[in-house]
Design a protein around this nucleic acid. Structure first.
Lengths: 388, 388
DNA sequence: CTGAAAGCGCTAACAG
DNA sequence: CTGTTAGCGCTTTCAG
């Protein structure tokens, strides 16, 4: 806005002359270092020439501080005329601030870390479609607010420190860890932190889907379809409040539907397709015997695996057994049968995580908050009436 | 190694005394700033206290440069005894170098950008499973070589500049763009750059699968199965050397199999599941008429969509038509039927991209190289004999 | 409204 | 082998 304003304002001739006087000088400024580099040993590549505040200041004939103030939008401290000339020079020279210098001087980096688990054997971070979607949304949200994202796989507190302290990250989003793992990361107490889908320790903000409701919706859907022998599967063995909540909601729904507590069993499985396939194979006999007719998985990828495992065993989904997922990842629409699932808006989740974090960073809200993303049942093809 | 060596070495008392003398002092050092912040307006959060080289130098009683040399492994310039004492203090105080300061002083950031397309309407970056896999591998490779990854969605040259120059990135990996788009990004000429799956302009390194061979393998597989009416689909309308190569290889195989040139047609489709579904619906009549029996898609996600579109139209894959994908993403094993595909090792691809880039950065190989990732046919369930 | 001074934490280039 | 000197580019005081 101010740039346009300035351009159209009746500025004194100085402003426009800058546009012409500036270019030749810049060229000569560049020539020096460039020539130097050419003769130097080529083992280190020349850095791109960086137009500095000083360059602008020299051009316009003002102090570095004035330029800094204009660039940073502190227009209250600069006369419109001066601001105009500075703006013009900034544009003409293509000035881009140096983040490292700003970090050093201002103790603010505008750099946010996204910490994901880097398991030694694991294929990679971003194995979970859910995490991928949230990651993209976090990046977009940060970008729109002039921040940058550092993507980092971490396994230990040392890894965390290596990123957070070394880069003086303004804050971090932590995703994909169990409650215990988050604790083991030993995040610096003063570091603005948002935890996604895990229990936030003291002083950490948190974003998660409405897990309890999600579990309940799942239970209601399945019991409404007449299922009376239910299995919920996911990483139940790990200390995970998320899974616990979903299980609790699921059980609650079953209870309300008049089912005995033992109508719901819990299977501890990793959140992977392969884990699901294995489980599907394992439970096939029970499905065949009619002692199990519906499975609720804590993630679509897992549900897809279960459906596959069941299918490989010669069972039909949903005729012989219903399978319900969680997340509504793209995957849910890609597999056959299309997955019924508890949908959550991962794009929104990422945005909320970013907003929460930046709120913490800027001190807008001092107290770390906890946000819940709404969920909704999306019934597709993988769930159906309980077999007679 | 040296740290352990030091700990066990018969160092003079100075070394061990450091461990004790150091802690109390540090506490008082911290107390100052911390107290200050508490009374200051809380709008800006206190940065984590940063132990500096100076702190270590003061502790050990040497110059900052000596500490710097030890920390950076320039052991040639420091006596073992001094190095030992410094190492001890570094460990005791938990020193972590400040990347911003290093960047500023050394003109090297150890920060690499991964630039992905950020399309306005697009769901997000990382929409493609292939890109997700490569991203994870790049991060892991960089991490193992003490570099960090900045993930950034860009659409314009300005976006690029905003990241690259602002953060003085050591280099960038560019992925997910068409040849034209890469050109439009106007990457700084001197910036070490590796382009994944797109034509590298002058002076850019490149990583891509062996697209020509991939296309040929696809063509051979399909023609060997007796197919004589082939369709290849992908973003053919965009200027993409990758697609062109795959098409060329595919055509070559068809020709060698004795098919006329018009046996192969090309369909321009976006690389999305939805694009595939739409195409599947569109070609269903031809499949039914027997004038088309096999489809080769340039990505698994697209192939999965085509299979779905065909299925929705009441056609069977592979009985009525074969569908062949590319990449061998996880997805290929998740959908039904499981996708036959041209497999490439995306993990390796990411590693190679990172290696290539760091080679460029360190000046190891001055000339930007081009690396090719081998491909192989993985036959699963989506391809079969041509219908009689 | 504008400028001068000082320093963020680190490293190159020299001196000793 | 070790220390000194000078900045990297920017922002924060504090003076005009």
């Amino acid at each position: 806005m101010s740039a346009l304003q300035v351009a159209g304002a009746p500025v004194r001739t100085g402003a426009s002359s800058v546009l012409f006087s500036v270019i030749p000088r810049l060229v000569s400024t560049i020539a020096g270092p460039a020539a130097q580099v050419a003769t130097a040993p080529s083992s280190r590549r020349s850095a791109l020439h960086h137009v500095t505040l000083k360059d602008i200041a020299r051009e316009v004939g003002v102090s570095v501080m004035t330029v800094s103030n204009v660039v940073n939008g502190n227009l209250g401290r600069v006369s419109p005329a001066t601001a105009a000339r500075v703006e013009a020079a900034v544009t003409a020279l293509g000035y881009v601030p140096n983040a490292a210098a700003q970090s050093l001087a201002a103790r603010r980096t505008r750099l946010v870390g996204l910490l994901l688990p880097s398991r030694p054997d694991d294929t990679s971070l971003l194995a979970s479609p859910h995490d991928v979607a949230v990651t993209g949304a976090v990046e977009a949200a940060l970008r729109s607010r002039d921040h940058h994202l550092m993507l980092r796989g971490v396994a230990t507190a040392r890894d965390v420190s290596d990123s957070v302290r070394r880069w003086s990250l303004d804050g971090v989003v932590v995703m994909g860890f169990t409650d215990d793992e988050v604790r083991a990361l030993d995040l610096p107490a003063t570091l603005p932190t948002v935890v996604v889908d895990a229990a936030a320790g003291s002083g950490l903000a948190q974003v998660r889907s409405d897990d309890r409701t999600g579990g309940r919706l799942a239970g209601e859907h399945l019991t409404a379809l007449g299922h009376r022998h239910l299995l919920i599967c996911g990483p139940a063995g790990t200390a995970s409040g998320v899974v616990a909540q979903r299980v609790a909601g699921f059980r609650e729904a079953a209870r309300r539907a008049g089912l005995p507590d033992d109508a719901v069993t819990v299977a501890d499985t990793p959140t992977t397709y392969e884990g699901g396939v294995a489980l599907g194979a394992r439970i096939a006999p029970q499905v065949r015997a009619g002692t199990l007719t519906a499975v609720f998985a804590t993630a679509d990828i897992l549900a897809a695996g279960v459906a596959r495992g069941l299918g490989d065993a010669g069972l039909r989904v949903p005729e012989d057994a219903s399978v319900l997922g969680y997340d509504d990842a793209d995957l849910a629409r890609h597999v056959t049968p299309r997955l019924s699932t508890i949908a959550q808006d991962t794009t929104r989740k990422g945005h909320v995580a970013a907003d929460l974090l930046l709120g913490l960073v800027t001190g807008q809200h001092a107290e770390p908050r906890s946000e819940t993303i709404p969920v909704a049942l999306t019934a597709r093809e993988s769930t159906g009436p309980a077999p007679a």
